[in-house]
Each structure stands twice: as C-alpha cells, then as structure tokens.
C-alpha cells in the first residue's frame, strides 16, 4: 500500500480512538477503556498485507486493527455504548470485540491472543491454504506463560503465524524492563522463530517488515516474531491513576503522594534504604508516565504526516474525522 493509503488508515484509527475517548469521558462508555493511540502505524502497516481468509487475534486494545480491517465503525461504537445496535448487541464491550466474517477476535486476558492466533493459523493451514494468522499483544504479555508456550508451539508446528509485539515499555503501571529478564526479540529467537525489530512509529518500516514475514508464512516457511516499539499515548487505560497523579501531583495525585509520604515516615517498617528505594522508584514512574502522555514527538501520526505532505495529510485527516463523525451520529453517540 502507498504512503497515502497507510496514512489514511492511521488517521481513521486515530479518529476512532479520539471519538471513543470523548464518549468515555462523557460517561457513555462504561468500565475500563484501553485505547490503541500510538499503535496506529502497527495496525495500518500489518493489516496492509492481509487478505480475505487471514485471521487476526487481538488483545485489549483491538480497535485500531479492527478499524483498519474494515469493521463497521458505527456498529463498534454502538457496542461500546452498550446498545442493541452494537455489533454484539451490547453484550461484549471493547475488550471482546469480534468479527466472525473477518476472522478477528479480541480478549481482555493478557497473553491469550497468542495461542488463539496459533489456533487460527492451524485452522487456516488446514482449511484456507496460503492464509496466515496474526496475533497482536504487548510487551507485558511477553511474560505470560501461555504466550511463551505459544512461541514454542508456533515454531514446533511451523505455523503460518506472525506474532506482533507492540512494545510500549509498560506492563499496566509497571515498567516492563523492571520485571523482565533478557530481551523479547532474543527470547523469540531462542525459540527458533524468525525475528525482526522495527520502529513501530514508522509505518513504512512496519509495513515492509510485516509484508516479508507474512509472505514467508504464506509460503509455508513458518512463523515470525515482529517487535514494534510504540509509544503509549493515553496510559494503560483512560483515567489511568498513575498518569493522572503524574500530570497533576497537587490535584489527582495529592492523595497518593500524601499516603506515600506518611507511610514512608511510619514509625515501623523497612530500613531507611528500602523506603528510599521505593519512593525513588515511584517518583521515577510518575516522571516517565508524565513524559509519555500524548507525546507529540513520538506520535506515529505526527511522524507519518511528513511521508505524505501536509496538504494530503490534512485532507485525509478531515475525511477520517468526517467518516468517524458520521459513525458516531449513526451509533447514536452524537449530542
């Protein structure tokens, strides 16, 4: 796909996430809301190589990929609004969006997209020769047993599967490197998978790497692991307590910081060094959370703008906004 086509899909995905965010803030979407803002280049770049008959297993941030795949936007929005006109009649919500016709399925259980993707690949090999499956997940999921077992299974059975790790550096409100030994790419290589490591904010690089890996899988040359580094622009979920505390230490963060301070000064507890290490680590987390919050320098959409030029970018963004605006109205989300 050409640069304009990729940018168009990214703009659509972003417009959809922004509309979702507004509805969530209005209180019209309930529960947790994990946006995929920052992952648009990965969604557009990978889906560009998919064909009918391919299958996609998704995590708790499924909407950018589903938007690019062509799922009805009004139906997805209506689903998140809990309406009978939603694609699952309000039963599923954003973490459980699925499309049987597009062979796409998401899940809110971290790591579960990997074995699901392996199963899709198995069915595809048997029933739709030349088809592939893609599993999307985050770096946090790289420490989940079922995912690590799937790396082995995919290699052992030489499945037509692309495993896409959207590496944003976070596992909920934990820095992934603080709880991870080794490197995800080296780990996948250790299981015998082909690996590729790309800048997930560079849509051209993602598209090229994904195309190679998907071609190999189609030709029966086995599974690949693609790590794409992405920013996390809206926290773990909307209203992420750590992000809010970091952004407004005197407001939303006041209770947390007050509780931490008085606890650190308790008469009993750990040694002074232990307490200091904890406090320093918490402050560091807040600093990192603040830095990533809607960081325009690392925003893939901003970066992709230069690949198509300002004029084309503005036109495509306006079209995407109009399309999503119509979907919001059709879903009954407009005021």
């Amino acid at each position: 796909m050409d640069a304009a086509g990729l940018f168009r899909q990214m703009a659509r995905a972003r417009a959809f996430e922004d509309a979702t965010s507004a509805l969530w803030r209005e209180g019209r979407i309930s529960g947790e809301m994990h946006l995929g803002t920052g992952e648009e280049a990965v969604a557009a770049g990978v889906v560009a190589s998919l064909r009918p008959g391919d299958a996609v297993a998704l995590d708790h941030r499924p909407t950018p990929v589903l938007t690019v795949l062509g799922v009805d936007l009004a139906g997805m929005l209506a689903e998140m609004l809990g309406m009978e006109s939603g694609i699952h009649r309000g039963r599923a919500g954003h973490m459980h969006l699925m499309s049987r016709t597009l062979l796409a399925s998401s899940s809110g259980i971290v790591g579960s997209s990997a074995p699901l993707g392996a199963g899709f690949a198995l069915a595809g090999r048997a029933l739709r020769p030349g088809s592939v499956a893609v599993a999307f997940f985050g770096d946090g999921a790289m420490n989940q047993g079922m995912l690590l077992e799937t790396l082995n299974l995919a290699a052992a059975w030489s499945l037509p599967l692309l495993l896409v790790c959207k590496d944003n550096g976070w596992s909920i409100t934990t820095r992934t490197d603080a709880v991870t030994g080794g490197d995800p790419v080296a780990r996948a290589r250790g299981f015998g998978l082909e690996t590729v490591d790309v800048d997930g904010g560079d849509v051209g690089a993602v598209a090229e790497a994904a195309a190679d890996a998907i071609d190999r899988a189609r030709n029966g040359e086995g599974p690949s692991f693609l790590r794409a580094r992405v920013p996390r622009l809206d926290g773990h979920f909307l209203g992420d307590a750590l992000v809010r505390a970091a952004r407004s230490p005197a407001g939303d963060g006041r209770q947390l910081l007050g509780d931490v301070t008085s606890a650190a000064l308790s008469r009993t507890g750990g040694g002074l060094g232990d307490r200091a290490r904890s406090v320093v680590r918490l402050l560091d987390l807040m600093r990192r959370a603040r830095r990533e919050d809607r960081d325009t320098r690392h925003d893939p959409l901003e970066r992709a703008r230069s690949t198509v030029g300002q004029e084309v970018a503005s036109r495509l963004e306006a079209e995407a906004l109009a399309e999503v605006g119509r979907a919001v109205a059709a879903a009954g989300g407009a005021h």
Binding site: G270, D274, S278, L282
Partner: peptide
C-alpha cells in the same frame, strides 16, 4: 507498587514485590 503504594513506601521493594504479568 502503585496499588499498594503506601505499603511499598513503608516496607520497601524487598517486601512489596512488583511482578510481571505472569
């Protein structure tokens, strides 16, 4: 460390251990 931040600050990272999603 986030959910039990006061315990983390009081007892330190050796007694309040942040785990991977494992």
């Amino acid at each position: 460390h986030t959910l039990r931040a006061p315990l983390f600050a009081r007892f330190g990272p050796r007694r309040v251990l942040s785990a991977p999603i494992s």
